[in-house]
Write a protein that binds this DNA or RNA. Structure first.
Length: 850
RNA sequence: GCGGAAGUGGUGGAACGGUAGACACGCUGGCCUUAGGAGCCAGUCCUCGCAAGAGGGUGAGGGUUCGAAUCCCUCCUUCCGCACCA
């Protein structure tokens, strides 16, 4: 059998990412390609930040999903002329280190540092352009001392204060529990199974509420709408009135005590038929009649076992207990019974409400359950006075009016609200008021692995701040965990015993540490000068580099980290420490990668995808590309164990067309021949046009981080090159241009293979090596992307009936005339009258017939 | 429950209010030759049909429009957050 007619399959070197990738990573490091000169002002700066990681020990595919597209942004920005700063660090304090310590006996610090080492190594396999020279690790004293310093500044400014707040408490272990340490619907301690109860402790707060109104303003930042909405709802500004009720005298109570309520509906004050206090309200004990004491105590205990989510759920049965005392309504002197119920929270408003069952759903449900009166005070015209309310009426219509409200009758609800509030104000029994759902930030944690709060308790001077020059207050190196007795710092005599900075007498250190969200509220400033021991933030670098131009990370941080960071920025600006009032100019929230089973990845479910295995098997470039290809970046989704074959095959094809343009595989009968009716000039032109159109699309896709369609477009271009492989145009100028653009476009997203093929191109051309990542992003030729022929869909009554080829720029009338002559159109027009023709130039023609 | 987001082939997804299903996975068929986690070509939304073609189709139901996956309303399902996980 002769083989002369089909050329032997060419044997090119196989694409071998495991050989290529470490080699280029080492080269880039050697050349310090990603070390950012923060003082270089020759190019515009671009601060690119991705949320730093908690060192849990394993980098999983979700970390790659955040970081590799962000790296593509970094590389693209560099190619388009920016001085990019792209740092990396670790959020190193936190509960998992303590849990591991309790389980294994290792010290949290050792465990954390070991994990950081492992994760740093794994991070390097991504081939990302992190500037490791600015790495930050928050559990290092050189970092957390500045948390302490900020705390002292906040304390001076009244932004930090101490107050009582409930914690989840295990009565057996005598320990404060984190939410995740409280298990099951019956809320028991994770270690001993004892029912958990809320207990009040003196704790430290940061006054984020001072900035509530400013935090509602997003005009200077370009953030996704859903995040802005979530923050707005979280802050939850409500305008209304505070109204002063007084208690009525009773056998057990002299009366005359003030009871302030907050309401958004002062217009419904005449409809208040009872009052509800939060079970934690300070007056509950004094107002409870002896006959009610037992029921009230039992109810308070029950409430202290519930979560706020349970308490606020609107679809569960309402519960409550009357105290046996009345409150006097200031507008009509009427006495109404006072109840306690869990749906009223101590921390919101004044912890007390006037209940207006006719006009509030929750109050309505409560009144129904306990047979309390329901009195309508707002009604649309024509409503009979005695018509029963089937549900709370809380709608607002233009023609509704106040009824049964004394001389306010006939007013609209908003007018009534204003009038009633003004009248109360003149009697000093009320005032307009604004309440926020957001509460001050509780930063105290009764745990050892965090930043010690820098205050001491002196028998003589009370609470005394540690002076700045005595910072940092160092965590002890080692501590013992006990089965009982809570925070080990409370048993560490060397840590505990100190002297009062004011009187030099004996003092005890604060053992609470800070919420780790304090660490993450300013870490991007520290990247600029991570080892500076004279100041937290280098103001001159802040002025050049901040705010962050682009921040990337998960949407699960919408209301906590991202709000705390904005708060910190404003507070630090007020302290004169930083220049800006917003930390992150632009934000992108990527989605979450789930396990192949569609569930959240976790070790216990056994569905964690390890990137190391994938890198070993397919190479980092394939993993990067697959994560970008699987769907829109903000969407995430389940991991597909087979999908990666697609991008891996794509990169092999890129390799093949680059290194073996003249060869072809044996399976295609038409291989080596140009498409029918196409000559070499047409083929070359087709390649050029495709390359430049792809470049135009890819450039646009970079602006919107649309990686999935970007990869698809690069696949199309590669498929086209594959089609012309082995033909007479392979390797010609048009082919070569397409090939060159393909590699440049690939560089930000698949950095290793593009660097390898680029270096071989340069070598083949006898040119000196220069990294593809130092090349300039190409620009497309407008003449080549211009469209000359368009395929125009023709519809009859909105249904597709035909496609016509027309020259771009053909006059509309000519197109319409042409369309009418088409047989398929004719067939559909037969026997019907043309009503009108909709012609969207360049898009379609729709003929409407009757 | 409250707040946010998403529902399109067997699967991941594509589609400025204008040709639904680009690009892939998987599967089927053909080819190549041989050990490569291979490669090449073709087909692949559903129904009817050899085909040309016809009809249906974007979670469900309604609406706006010449035209709706896209906009509006109601409902259903899934995912994320709810303040001590980070």
């Amino acid at each position: 059998m002769s083989t002369s007619e089909t050329p032997a399959r060419t044997r090119v070197e196989r694409y071998n990412p495991t050989e290529i990738e470490p080699r280029w990573q080492a080269r880039w490091e050697e050349l310090a390609l990603h070390r950012t000169d923060l003082h270089d002002t020759s190019r515009p700066k671009y601060y690119l930040l991705t949320m730093y990681e908690y060192p849990s020990g394993d980098l999983h595919i979700g970390h790659w999903y955040i970081k590799t597209p962000t790296d593509a942004i970094s590389r693209y920005r560099r190619m388009t002329g920016w001085n990019v700063f792209f740092p990396v660090g670790f959020d190193a304090f936190g509960l998992p280190a303590e849990n591991a310590a309790i389980k294994s006996g290792a010290q949290p610090r050792e465990w954390t540092m070991r994990n950081i080492e492992i994760m740093s190594r794994q991070l390097r396999t991504m081939g990302a352009t992190f500037d490791w020279s600015s790495e930050v690790v928050t559990c290092e004293p050189e970092y957390y001392r500045w948390n302490q310093w900020f705390f002292l500044k906040f304390l001076e400014q009244g932004l930090a204060y101490r107050a009582m707040a409930p914690v989840d408490w295990c009565p057996k272990d005598q320990v404060v529990l984190a939410r995740e340490q409280v298990e099951g619907a019956n809320r028991v301690c994770w270690r001993c199974g004892t029912p958990v109860i809320k207990r009040d402790l003196e704790q430290w707060f940061l006054r984020i509420t001072k900035y509530a109104d400013e935090l509602l303003d997003f005009k200077d930042i370009d953030w996704p709408e859903p995040i802005r909405v979530q923050q707005t709802n979280w802050i939850g500004r409500s305008e209304g009135a505070e109204v002063v009720f007084t208690t009525a005298p009773a056998d057990h109570h002299p009366g005359g005590e003030e009871l302030r309520v907050f309401t958004t509906r002062p217009d419904t004050l005449f409809g208040a038929t009872f009052m509800v206090l939060a079970p934690e309200h300070p007056l509950v004990e004094a107002l409870t009649a002896p006959s009610q004491k037992q029921a009230v105590d039992a109810y308070i205990y029950q409430t202290r076992r519930e979560t706020e989510i349970e308490r606020l759920s609107t679809d569960r049965e309402k519960t409550g207990v009357p105290l046996g005392t009345d409150a006097i309504n200031p507008v009509n002197g009427e006495g109404i019974p006072i109840w306690i119920a869990d749906y009223v929270l101590a921390g919101y408003g004044t912890g007390a409400i006037m209940a207006v069952p006719a006009h509030d759903e929750r109050d309505y449900a409560f009144a129904q359950k306990f047979g309390l009166p329901i009195r309508r005070v707002v009604a649309p015209p024509g409503t009979a006075d005695d018509a029963t309310l089937e549900a709370a009426y809380s709608a607002h219509t233009a023609d509704e009016r106040l009824v049964a409200s004394s001389h306010y009758n006939g007013m609209t609800a908003p007018d009534g609200a204003r009038a009633i509030t003004i009248d109360l104000e003149t009697r000093s029994l009320g005032k307009t008021s604004v309440t926020y759902r957001i509460r001050d930030w509780l930063i105290s944690r009764q745990r050892p692995w965090g930043t010690p709060i820098p205050v001491v308790y002196c028998e003589r001077d009370g609470i005394v701040a540690v002076p700045e020059d005595q910072l940092p207050v160092l965590l002890p190196d080692h501590w013992e965990y006990r089965a009982e007795g809570g925070n080990p710092l409370e048993h560490d005599e060397a840590f505990l015993n100190t002297t009062c900075p004011r009187c030099d007498g004996p003092a005890r250190r604060e053992t609470d540490t800070m919420d780790t969200f304090v660490d993450s509220s300013w870490y991007w400033w520290r990247y600029l000068s991570p080892h500076d021991d004279t100041q937290a933030i280098d103001r001159s670098l802040d002025e050049v580099w901040c705010p962050v131009d682009q921040y990337t990370g998960g949407a699960e941080h919408a209301v906590m980290h991202l709000l705390y960071s904005r708060f910190f920025c404003k507070a630090l600006n007020d302290l004169g420490i930083v220049r800006e009032r917003e930390p992150f100019k632009r934000l992108f929230n990527q989605g979450q990668i789930l396990g192949a089973d569609g569930e959240r990845m976790s070790k216990s479910r056994g569905n964690v995808q390890d990137p190391d295995d994938l890198v070993q098997r397919y190479g980092a470039d394939s993993v990067r590309l697959f994560l970008m290809f699987m769907g829109p970046w903000d969407q995430g989704g389940p991991w597909s164990p087979t999908g990666i074959n697609g991008v891996s095959g794509f990169l092999r094809r890129v390799w093949t067309v680059a290194l073996d343009p003249h060869g072809h595989e044996g399976g295609d009968q038409a291989a080596g021949a140009l498409p029918a009716g196409e000559d070499a000039a047409a083929a070359e032109h087709a390649l050029r046009v495709a390359a430049h159109r792809t470049l135009q699309q890819v450039t646009e896709e970079h602006a919107g981080f649309r990686w999935n369609t970007m990869v698809a477009h690069l696949m199309e271009l590669t498929n086209l090159l594959m089609r012309y492989r082995g033909t007479e145009v392979a390797g010609d100028a048009g082919w070569d241009e397409a090939e060159r653009l393909l590699l440049l476009m690939l560089a930000p997203i698949a950095p290793h293979i593009s660097e390898e093929l680029w270096s071989r191109r340069l070598a083949a051309a006898g040119e000196e090596w220069r990294s593809i990542h130092a090349e300039t992003w190409p620009t497309f030729d407008p003449a080549l992307v211009a469209v000359d022929q368009i395929e125009l869909p023709v519809q009859v009554n909105g249904k597709l009936r035909d496609l016509v080829q027309v020259a771009a720029g053909l006059p509309e009338a000519e197109i319409e005339a042409l369309v009418m002559t088409r047989p398929k159109v004719q067939a559909n027009l037969e026997g019907r009258t043309v009503v009108k023709v909709i012609h969207v130039p360049g898009r379609l023609v729709n003929i409407v017939v009757r």
